[in-house]
Design a binder for these strands. Structure first.
Lengths: 337, 337
DNA sequence: AAAATAAGTGCAAACGTTTGCACAACTTAT
DNA sequence: ATAAGTTGTGCAAACGTTTGCACTTATTTT
């Protein structure tokens, strides 16, 4: 019936001062064995849970990590979240998660709100607010880790996939399989990851002595629909100019492409090889199973937490770039000689 | 350089008392037009953001909804989250999200922690801690909404899919397509949703004058792997006894089944019809596209928030059961007469 | 012109913690 | 036996808000 018990209630029952209770509960050595046990017993009896609001008020921060993400319904994000969750839980931190629907303004607003909650630090996934941080980042005293978007500042750290390398790896593999006309299905135009993957694609081409052709970049945004449309783009190319392989910005688009190909009667990989990026769970069970470049998403999440916690201890933190491996499945086929 | 500005800093600059600042910022009518504007200007100037910790301490609750989920990496959960996010943001609430990895004990622990943060109320997705709440639910004063798991208690509300109806809908459709041997690929054994879907399956069979056969229940847990294994179960049945259709607990398992069927050279739907449940995004692009029963996940999330907010206003709230529609695609084929 | 009402502001308590400092009661070393 | 240390406990301030109450001044009403 009563309100939640507070430290004062325990103090009254135990016949001691609130401060003693606080110390006893924190296992401070400044309280005797006997009282400590008595107090802890009472606390358990009353089913006491500390007010984190009060604690965070006096301490100036709380064991909570603020997490900001453009969405929660993307399998790539979901996997990063999983890594975040595991690592932060192990470290005794909770997460206050906010999603922005990709709205840059809302992203900034969320940063403010989370800081108002005295979160210890912030992890921001795939930020969409590149410029908007300029002012903000200098004012903030809490550490911020950006995942897969690069920022700089005093308390700012980065954990990211080496997308340039991934793009290079994917493209080079297609080339070693004998493909000579390789298209790239683009991701969100302003996104850094897209730009980097495209750069890797280009480097691989040039290293192989091929010239980069602008018209082999298929517009897209990393959605399933973009993959669908890419297939129609391909169908509309004059036969002679059709690429024999397409490297897709991500698995989602690649999966969309696969599906549309099946509906249109285009055989993958016989008529067209398809390469994805991310290695989402579905890539394993698509038809055909998708050849892709792994993105170590769980690890990305884990390392973001580690970086943040390290920064919170005022230890030095360096930016981290993760490389994923090529996952060979069945959506790419060697060209006949 | 300084700390975050507080209401006192503003008060000092404006030459008024902190209380006046508080009122001015809250647009209270008890402060004059002039001072209000002056104060708000200063606040904007200083880039003031209120300490939600302090506010929540004095108010006894904060505009935050605690959300607990067994995982974040399931597309069904992701979609519910999306609904939660949209609705709560619109109402000016944030979300404190914790995931439990399906661990019942951790679920209880999370409830405690979130309440320690003075969250206004709790939304719990697909609870895995059926029994463990008995004691807890009577003590808690904050409203709790369970999504897709049924609980009762004074401040306890439910928003759920009518799984029995969905199971019935799916099975009846298979029967109207002429199938007579229909198997059910089970979900997590202890889960309520599995039990309800199975009940609907059984009811549909019996309404059609067929007898429920225990050996047509294929064990599973709603994972991709369970779907894979279900195909092998099917292959191992004597030809005469093989079901001509399988109703799967969820899309994930159905997708796994589809993939394995392709690898084993079993043609879907020619040799075997497959029905899913959930209508996850991937169901649309699988090969063949998956016939399934929609689960209105976004709506589930939205309504959970609405229920919680209504309860917070001390208005009456009733439990909600949502029915999804049948989504006919291509993984089910009529039996030849 | 006095009394009642309204409008604007400030004081101080409260929310539930943590923690520096002071104090008392014992020990131990001189 | 005194000084010095140790051990356990309590007091009170602080964290940043909100809000009931009291107070002043200006505006009405009689």
């Amino acid at each position: 019936m009563s309100q939640r018990p507070s430290i004062k209630d325990i103090a009254r029952i135990a016949g001691v001062a609130p401060s003693t209770v606080s110390r006893a509960l924190a296992d401070s050595p400044r309280v005797s064995q006997a009282t400590r046990q008595r107090i802890q017993a009472i606390a358990r009896e009353l089913d006491y849970t500390p007010s984190l609001a009060a604690r965070s008020l006096v301490m100036g921060s709380s064991p909570v990590i603020g997490v900001i993400s453009p969405t929660l319904s993307d399998p790539y994000i979901a996997s990063v979240m999983k890594g975040l969750e595991e690592a932060s839980h192990r470290a005794g931190y909770q997460r206050l998660v906010a999603s922005t629907q990709g709205d840059a303004e809302r992203e900034i607003e969320m940063v403010r709100m989370l800081l108002g909650h005295n979160v210890g630090g912030l992890i921001i996934l795939s930020s969409r607010a590149q410029g908007a941080y300029q002012e903000l980042l200098t004012q903030i005293r809490e550490p911020i880790v950006f995942v897969n978007s690069l920022h700089t500042g005093e308390h700012v750290y980065n954990v990211a996939t080496d997308n340039e390398h991934g793009g290079w790896l994917a493209t080079r593999y297609l080339l070693t399989q004998g493909h000579r006309r390789v298209a790239y299905l683009a991701g969100p135009t302003r996104g850094r990851s897209h730009v980097a993957r495209a750069a890797g694609y280009r480097r691989a081409l040039e290293e192989a002595g091929l010239t980069f052709e602008r018209q082999l970049i298929i517009p897209g945004d990393g959605s399933i629909r973009a993959g669908r449309e890419a297939l129609h783009w391909w169908l509309n190319q004059p036969h002679a100019q059709r690429p024999t392989a397409i490297f897709c910005y991500n698995d989602l688009a690649a999966l969309g492409l696969l599906s549309e190909a099946h509906q249109q009667g285009v055989s993958i990989p016989d008529e067209l090889s398809v390469m994805g990026f991310d290695n989402v769970p579905m890539a394993e069970i698509s038809i055909p199973p998708l050849t892709t470049v792994e993105q170590r998403t769980r690890e990305l999440g884990r390392l973001a937490v580690v970086s943040l916690l390290t920064a919170l201890e005022n230890k030095p933190v360096t930016d981290i770039f993760l490389r994923g491996e090529l996952i060979v499945r069945a959506s790419v086929k060697p060209m006949e000689a």
